[in-house]
């Protein structure tokens, strides 16, 4: 009885500690949110903190553009949240404090614009799909036709996520009936199931397959079947730091930003 109650207490202590840690994290997250703004437009440089919500497929490129932006504007700090565009659009609708939204589909941007959270988005990149397979290609995937076999385990994005929308278009164009084993929350989750070797193939953007390096092999989708998606970007109406937010959007649209994107495999609009 005694050691039992001791243990119960220790579990409670652990939970209390976990709760305290969670509160600390929440407090920390609030600390870096958009409310902490000290714009110092000294000598044309941008300042303050901004939060950029960006499609998962922009993880590598936007991180790089963000670093350059911070180097050019030492007083500015850019915090990213990468997720499925549909999930981010929902977060913005629910009042997530953020300054910039970059979507992997015009559809999710339109929802945000229609809800009055943003205006005049600019398309800054395009992307097409490819078939990513583990380096050893255990499913012997040769093309889209392979993905119709029940023996080939395929991962796709959820149908409401942009990469899932584009995948459905590709399947329609090629008149193939893909039989996925899982519908993942975003394109990076599809990619990780491929790199772990848990699936034989995944439909991801060419940029994601390229970013994964040697871990995956790319099996190209013929151009006549492929579908592309547009990436719009906009500052958000509720931004507490519109100057710096606009500055980041300009950095993405700048020649330097565009160079980062094209090198990663994005198309120019």
């Amino acid at each position: 009885m005694n050691s039992q109650s001791d243990k119960r207490v220790s579990v409670r202590t652990a939970r209390a500690a976990a709760g305290a840690a969670l509160l600390a994290v929440i407090a920390g997250a609030c600390g870096v949110s958009t409310t902490d703004t000290t714009p110092e437009p000294s000598s044309g440089g941008y300042g303050g903190n901004i939060t950029v919500l960006a499609a998962a497929s922009l993880t590598e490129t936007f991180t790089q553009i963000g670093k350059t932006f911070e180097a050019d504007n030492p007083n500015a700090k850019v915090t990213f949240s990468f997720a499925a565009s549909s999930a981010l659009a929902e977060q913005i609708d629910s009042g997530a404090p953020a300054d910039v939204f970059a979507s992997a589909s015009t559809k999710n941007m339109d929802t945000v614009v229609q809800a009055g959270h943003a205006a005049d988005p600019t398309v800054f990149a395009t992307n097409v799909l490819t078939i990513a397979v583990p380096a050893a290609n255990p499913g012997k995937v040769t093309g889209l036709d392979s993905l119709t076999s029940r023996n080939v385990k395929t991962a796709l994005c959820q149908p409401q996520v942009p990469c899932g929308v584009v995948a459905a278009e590709v399947a329609t164009n090629a008149k193939v009936d893909i039989t996925p084993v899982t519908l993942e929350p975003d394109v990076k989750s599809v990619l990780s199931k491929v790199t772990l070797g848990e699936v034989d193939a995944g439909l991801v953007y060419v940029t994601d397959a390229r970013a994964a390096g040697d871990k995956v092999r790319e099996i190209a989708i013929p151009a006549k079947f492929n579908a592309s998606t547009d990436y719009p970007i906009a500052t958000l109406k509720d931004s507490q730091n519109t100057d710096t937010a606009q500055g980041f959007v300009d950095a993405v649209l700048s020649d330097e930003g565009q160079k980062v994107l094209t090198e990663a495999g994005f198309g120019t609009p």
């Binding site: 084993v181 519908l183 993942e184």
Partner: peptide
């Protein structure tokens, strides 16, 4: 288990 309607969702 991933997520697929009717099977793992």
């Amino acid at each position: 288990a991933g997520s697929f309607p009717g099977r793992t969702q």
